[in-house]
Computed example of a mutant assay.
Amino acid sequence: MNLKQQIEQYQPDNAQEIKDQELILKYMDLFDNLLTRENEFAHFTASAWVVNQNRTKVLMAYHNIYQSWSWVGGHADGNANLLEVALKETQEETGLQKIKPVSDEMYSIEILGVAAHEKKGNHIATHVHLNVTYLIEADENELLQIKPDENSDIGWFTFEDAIAASTEPEMKVVYKKLNDKLRK
């Protein structure tokens, strides 16, 4: 099943996801380069909501650009298999090797606004990430390793502490949604 079909078949969990699904599908009809950063307005990213085996904690990384505790993930960079992207980014950003998806299905979708910033000496204009989140399981006892060019710390948090640790108001809403799904 291709990415568009996966997004079409995704069952939105709330009004935000209903609207974002509609817009993502509209963008997919308008643009043919959403899998790469060549599209400077909107492009696909994949995130991982990494949980421990008991589903009592989530893994957060202190993101250098946003100066906030956040989930892990990254740009699709041409790869339409967003689960693969989420798994790769989780390993790269945390050092974890013993990870597995709880499901191959999308866990969440969202359109995320990204403020203008500098990255590697280049100005990145304000744009949006068409984000797909996957629920990933990891062993909380496995050794963590920061990725200095992206994060400066990594740690396991209770659901509530993960939300409190984030300094980005819009992301607190996303993390609450992800945690609420876990509790269902």
Results as ranks from 00 to 15, higher is better:
residue 143 L to A: 10
residue 128 V to R: 11
residue 121 G to D: 07
residue 120 K to M: 08
residue 94 T to D: 01
residue 110 E to D: 15
residue 77 D to V: 02
residue 89 E to S: 07
residue 123 H to R: 14
residue 147 K to T: 06
residue 94 T to P: 05
residue 122 N to V: 11
residue 120 K to Y: 15
residue 95 G to V: 02
residue 96 L to E: 00
residue 112 L to Q: 15
residue 111 I to N: 03
residue 83 L to Q: 04
residue 91 Q to S: 13
residue 108 S to A: 03
residue 105 E to W: 00
residue 82 L to C: 01
residue 111 I to K: 03
residue 112 L to C: 13
residue 89 E to Y: 05
residue 151 N to R: 00
residue 82 L to H: 04
residue 139 D to Y: 10
residue 126 T to P: 10
residue 138 A to F: 04
residue 122 N to D: 12
residue 78 G to T: 09
residue 73 G to A: 01
residue 88 K to A: 00
residue 72 V to F: 02
residue 109 I to V: 01
residue 126 T to G: 11
residue 145 Q to D: 08
residue 145 Q to V: 15
residue 110 E to I: 14
residue 121 G to N: 08
residue 118 E to Y: 03
residue 87 L to R: 02
residue 93 E to R: 04
residue 120 K to W: 10
residue 142 E to S: 07
residue 117 H to N: 09
residue 129 H to T: 09
residue 147 K to M: 14
residue 126 T to R: 15
residue 125 A to I: 10
residue 92 E to C: 01
residue 100 K to M: 10
residue 75 H to A: 10
residue 101 P to E: 11
residue 132 V to A: 00
residue 92 E to W: 00
residue 83 L to I: 01
residue 138 A to C: 07
residue 106 M to Q: 01
residue 112 L to D: 07
residue 113 G to S: 15
residue 113 G to C: 10
residue 120 K to E: 12
residue 123 H to P: 13
residue 88 K to W: 03
residue 78 G to R: 08
residue 88 K to I: 09
residue 108 S to E: 07
residue 132 V to K: 03
residue 127 H to S: 13
residue 140 E to V: 10
residue 74 G to A: 06
residue 113 G to H: 13
residue 111 I to H: 06
residue 140 E to G: 05
residue 90 T to N: 04
residue 127 H to N: 11
residue 95 G to R: 03
residue 133 T to C: 07
residue 117 H to F: 12
residue 127 H to R: 13
residue 145 Q to T: 14
residue 87 L to Y: 10
residue 77 D to A: 14
residue 115 A to P: 04
residue 134 Y to L: 00
residue 73 G to T: 05
residue 140 E to L: 14
residue 107 Y to P: 04
residue 92 E to P: 01
residue 80 A to H: 10
residue 107 Y to S: 08
residue 118 E to F: 08
residue 122 N to I: 12
residue 87 L to C: 12
residue 147 K to D: 05
residue 80 A to M: 02
residue 136 I to A: 01
residue 91 Q to M: 12
residue 92 E to R: 10
residue 99 I to M: 02
residue 143 L to Q: 14
residue 145 Q to M: 11
residue 96 L to A: 01
residue 79 N to P: 14
residue 109 I to E: 04
residue 90 T to P: 05
residue 76 A to Y: 01
residue 83 L to R: 00
residue 86 A to S: 08
residue 139 D to S: 01
residue 83 L to Y: 09
residue 121 G to C: 03
residue 143 L to S: 14
residue 124 I to V: 15
residue 89 E to A: 03
residue 87 L to N: 02
residue 106 M to F: 14
residue 116 A to Y: 04
residue 79 N to Y: 12
residue 96 L to P: 02
residue 138 A to Q: 04
residue 147 K to Y: 12
residue 151 N to V: 09
